[in-house]
Amino acid sequence: MARTNFLVTGMSCGHCAASIKEALRGVPGVGEVDVDVAAGTVAVEGTGLDDAVLRAAIVEAGYEVPGTAAV
């Protein structure tokens, strides 16, 4: 299972985390999503993950993805 990490801006609460999780769980291949609002990071685990599709899902949920987190 692959793991991809993103820095995400615009998150401020549990509702933000829930919105991002919901958006990413709709992407094919996504198995688990971990959101750390305080750190501004989102980690996605799954198979056959497409970075561009994951970024687009986060953006469509109303958040910004300035770059991939180095974790």
Rank of each mutant, 00 (worst) to 15 (best):
R25A: 03
E45A: 12
L7T: 10
T41V: 10
G10S: 02
I58E: 01
R25Y: 14
G31Y: 00
R25C: 04
D51V: 12
A2H: 13
I58K: 06
V35Q: 06
T68E: 14
G26A: 12
F6R: 07
D34V: 14
V71C: 14
R55Q: 13
H15S: 06
H15C: 09
S12M: 14
Y63D: 08
L49N: 08
A43D: 07
G29H: 02
V30R: 05
V42N: 02
G62I: 10
A61L: 13
A23N: 06
A61H: 10
T47K: 08
H15V: 08
T9P: 03
E22K: 08
V37E: 05
A43M: 04
V30E: 04
Y63S: 07
E45N: 08
K21L: 06
Y63G: 03
V53I: 11
H15E: 12
A43H: 01
C16W: 02
T9Y: 10
P66A: 09
A18C: 06
G46I: 01
A23K: 04
E45F: 08
V42E: 01
A38R: 08
A39V: 02
A39E: 12
A39N: 10
L7A: 08
G10A: 09
C16S: 12
A43Y: 02
T68Q: 15
G26H: 10
I20L: 05
M1D: 07
V44S: 03
E32D: 11
C13V: 08
D50Q: 13
G10L: 14
E32Y: 10
V65Y: 00
R55K: 14
A70F: 11
V65A: 01
G31V: 03
A39Q: 07
G67E: 13
G14W: 02
A17G: 09
G40K: 10
I20K: 06
P66W: 00
A17Y: 01
D34N: 13
V71F: 14
A52G: 12
V53Y: 06
V27G: 01
P28E: 03
V37L: 04
V27K: 00
C16V: 14
